[in-house]
């Protein structure tokens, strides 16, 4: 039996690929979105910033920010799922991954956001579940929360066009 890889090698590969994926989306940086990784599971983190406020009277996060955060989480989660097998099988080298060498990103076909309560002026989290991922289309559900995992402030469903795979 093959010896398991050293943990640092595994982590470096996975974290490196994730950083390249997220770092390649300027808009995610602009909003202050990062991703926590546990194995292959991702959690989007939206760091609170004054510029994310939509209603200064409440104050509350802008609905557009919430939508964007959920959409970024959906796209990154979907791309990550697409990348994972190639990365783990060694078909994709994590070192030197750039937007040019990464597979193309899925494109949003439609995205529907359900606003459950107003977004508070603090950090927000989101996790996406890929309900169906075929060769051409994928369907994704995303949940967003702040203080309590069980009290969602927004959820969304979207369809995505998968990039064409060479071969």
């Amino acid at each position: 039996m093959k010896r398991p890889e050293p943990i640092q090698v595994v982590k470096q590969r996975r974290d490196g690929a994730l950083a390249a994926l997220v770092g390649g989306v300027p808009y995610a940086r602009f909003l202050g979105i990062s991703f926590d990784r546990r194995g292959d599971e991702l959690t989007g983190v939206l760091r609170f910033d004054e510029k994310l406020i939509g209603n200064p009277a409440l104050p509350a996060l802008h609905g557009g920010v919430t939508a964007a955060f959920l959409e970024v989480t959906a796209i990154v989660t979907l791309s990550w799922a697409m990348l994972w097998d190639d990365l783990e099988a060694g078909r994709l080298a994590a070192e030197g991954l750039t937007p040019e060498t990464l597979p193309r990103l899925p494109k949003t076909i439609d995205f529907s956001v359900d606003y459950l309560r107003s977004g508070l002026p603090r950090d927000a989290y989101a996790r996406a579940r890929v309900n169906r991922s075929g060769r051409r289309y994928a369907s994704i559900h995303v949940e967003g929360w702040q203080d309590n995992r069980d009290r969602l402030f927004a959820q969304a469903t979207g369809h995505f066009l998968m990039p064409r795979r060479e071969e």
Binding site: H62, G64, A68, T108
Partner: peptide
């Protein structure tokens, strides 16, 4: 190409 999320923000507003 601009991110769909930014277009969401404009349409929401």
């Amino acid at each position: 190409v601009i991110h769909g999320g930014a277009i969401s923000a404009l349409m929401d507003t």
